[in-house]
């Protein structure tokens, strides 16, 4: 298990990717369908990861990726380039995923399932790591929905706070405030549970 790489807040480093997205969207708007296929190939993997983390089901995540891109396809005229194409698609996907979870009525726990825990004597260190991961995941699940989404987008997906705000549909300051309250709450929950 390795840490999720966090992207720097300096959006200048993301400028080439954004410029390429913009070029492809313009090509698509001019009638080039292949440009949309290229956009799909550029973003389907990170989008799948984001949506899987929300729904925790591979088939559902795959279906949601399809639904997201189709929604983007039919609504590409609505993207004005004010946000990045990535955050625009992420926002569509997050809304679809949250609706999907609401409709299914299943808020799956992020905790490690019992059958995913080590069943053999794999060493104290791995057991401690598994327990820590489980408790971290459970703590994240206790967060209010918006705070949880902000933490997932920032910590797991590596988005800048500006990008988090674009996906969540809030101001950047509001995204930072949600992050602050989420971290404070996680600290309290984990401290109560014995995590320093």
């Amino acid at each position: 298990m390795h840490a999720v790489a966090r992207q720097p807040d300096d959006t200048a480093e993301n400028a080439p990717a954004r410029a390429e997205d913009l070029r492809l969207v313009e090509q698509f708007r001019a009638g080039d369908r292949r440009a949309f296929g290229e956009l799909v190939r550029r973003w389907q993997r990170p989008l799948y990861g984001l949506l899987w983390r929300i729904v925790r089901n591979e088939a559902d995540a795959r279906d949601l990726v399809q639904a997201t891109f189709l929604r983007a396809w039919t609504g590409a005229e609505g993207w004005r380039g004010e946000s990045s194409f990535r955050t625009w698609v992420y926002r569509i996907g997050v809304n679809l995923a949250l609706n999907h979870k609401r409709d299914r009525g299943r808020w799956l726990s992020a905790a490690v399932a019992p059958d995913e825990l080590p069943t053999e004597a794999t060493g104290l260190r791995r057991l401690v790591e598994a327990e820590t991961s489980q408790r971290m995941g459970q703590a994240v699940e206790t967060l209010p929905a918006r705070q949880k989404l902000v933490v997932e987008l920032r910590v797991y997906e590596g988005l800048s706070f500006r990008e988090v705000a674009e996906v969540v549909g809030s101001s950047e300051d509001a995204a930072k405030a949600n992050f602050h309250h989420a971290i404070k709450r996680l600290r309290d929950v984990l401290t109560e549970g014995g995590e320093a």
Binding site: A3, F36, G37, V40, R41, Q66, E129, E195
Partner: peptide, 26 residues
Amino acid sequence: NGLREAAPVVPEQDERFWDDLATSLE
């Protein structure tokens, strides 16, 4: 750091999965 280390690991998919997904979308 602990949260990032404990991030839920997204199931890995092979290249065929992504090709099929993109082809289906197109």
